[in-house]
Amino acid sequence: MKLTELLTEDLIKLNLEGKDKEACLKELVTLLAEAGKITEQEEFYQTILAREELSTTGVGNQVAIPHGKSEVVKEPTIVFAKSETGVDYGSIDDQDVKLFFMIAVPEKKSEEHLKVLAKLSRKLMHQEFREDLLTAATKQKVLEVIKEHE
């Protein structure tokens, strides 16, 4: 399975409006709901917040990977979003976050999907991948970058 099968154009947002962490997370969850990937918007938002409580998903290098596992998720999905200005996310390296990957996983997990997410997580540790994503100006370009690095 390819990463791009979990991430489609309607799940990409190139300029988040939110100015703080909570607002951005809400936007991401809204995107999921609009694409019909979750049945309960508020509930999934709470799941995401609960995970942040545990420890920040701001993994450094301007990347955040808020994620949640919940019954309200229909199928494993990735949302990608960028913030032009950067958002204070309480990241482990205190950098503002510009790249968001929100990961939604249903309670009933499929191994194949989880492996794709694992692959994405590994890719995020590579600087070129992050830089290419930061410079990608269109949704099409974002998907191309991800394909290139697949």
Binding site: V59, I103, L120, S121, L124
Partner: peptide, 10 residues
């Protein structure tokens, strides 16, 4: 990691 989807692999 707790959820085991991202941090583990990163």
């Amino acid at each position: 990691c707790p959820t085991g989807v991202a941090h583990t692999y990163m």
